[in-house]
Design a binder for these strands. Structure first.
Lengths: 211, 211
DNA sequence: CGCATTCTTGATAGTAGTCAAAACCGGTGG
DNA sequence: CCACCGGTTTTGACTACTATCAAGAATGCG
């Protein structure tokens, strides 16, 4: 799929439409690569669903160190917060379509969204294990397995994000990520069709590496 | 407070009682130090509220490496899961009283519990920054500030957990945690009334260290 | 086709981990 | 009250993994 960059904040569907089951849908907003979706400290009264593209949710330290808490791919919902304000930044990675949903009634929202929030919680807690206790090769392997599974489990898939993003997600440097990729290629575990297109050659080996 | 160890699973209040506002309360179960509250893979149909004591929620790698995803102190609710099964282990740290609440109606639960789940989510995501991007002294400082604030913000407080628990929470080794404690003492930032009782002498310095 | 960006590779340094042993504390029993 | 015992914590010496700094290659976009 080729998508032409649109001005940040452009409304692909400026009016709400309805899906097949008659539910009112929110308009989809299109974000340029790198465009901010929300910022830390902003009021949080919306939820966001990725229509196409990908999103990074991150936090910064005073000296510029960045930790990406999560990537969100097509179909996923993000933007859950407490205290009514955002604790993180969210940015489009490539050109990305986002369905922005204003929170209507707290009741409705809770019923439908608790499972989604819990999925984010489990995902975050599992990522703690990666950051706290796994070495660089294990982290990269776990990342690749996760990305492959989230894109349908195909043996070949695209990485929407840069090496820098991967590094900031895995708590590594860009150089270390690159070196691990090279090692994985040398061992015949993966192949790179292009820099951003990975083919997993030896699934079993990769899974074992990620523990 | 001194609490005598009781047999694991002992029901302090075997029958449900009601609080001042008339809500039915679940009985409190008392767990011995180290007792398992739930295990990874178990069916998850309850939530848990800490009445007294403290809890560690963790995950293990095949080779025994352990990552503590969260500590839970008096008043806090934990045990949120997806897919109806636990992805983590939960254990009492010291002698601990837990109010175990069976999930009645999904609706009721969602309404009341979404904010609690979101608090856990934000906490986990913020901990990702610590594990992914902070050095040992920053991690320990952040931990001490967090613990102090969760116990009322007093300058003097108890650590319910061992150095090993702290290490496994911060993604460090016990030796590194110990060395950082020593450094903090030498710099006059903290004082140790006993091994498990911390006094923060220079709040400002500690906060700065944690970024 | 050329330039800017991103990625890879190499050399070196630093932080935290590992292994080992000593010190300390808390609890027990004389 | 004090000595002893087991486990926890601290300290020390050394190793290893990853970060940092610095070029150099490749990619992809205009």
């Amino acid at each position: 799929m080729t998508i032409h960059p649109l001005p940040t904040g452009f409304d692909a569907f400026p009016f709400a439409v309805a899906d097949a089951s008659g539910n009112a849908l929110q308009p989809v907003t299109c974000f340029d690569p790198g465009a901010e979706i929300y910022a830390q400290g902003e009021k949080a009264d919306c939820l966001y669903q990725v229509e196409f593209g990908a999103v990074r949710v991150y936090r910064l330290l005073a000296d510029g160190r960045r930790q990406i808490a999560a990537f969100h791919m097509a179909g996923e919902v993000f933007g859950f917060e407490t205290d009514g304000s955002h604790h993180f930044f969210a940015e489009a990675i490539g050109t990305t379509g986002i369905r922005i949903m204003r929170l209507a009634s707290a009741g409705d929202v809770s019923r439908a969204l608790l499972p989604l929030a819990l999925k984010s919680l489990v995902r975050a807690q599992e990522h703690l294990l990666v950051l706290g206790r796994q070495h660089a090769p294990e982290r990269v392997a776990a990342f690749l397995v996760d990305m492959a599974e989230r894109q349908g489990g195909d043996t070949r898939f695209d990485l929407p994000m840069s090496r820098m993003d991967i590094a900031d997600y895995l708590g590594l440097t860009i150089e270390t990520v690159s070196r691990v990729f090279t090692k994985l290629k040398e061992k015949g575990v993966i192949r790179l069709a292009s820099l951003r297109c990975v083919e997993i050659v030896r699934w079993h080996a990769l899974r074992e590496m990620s523990e």
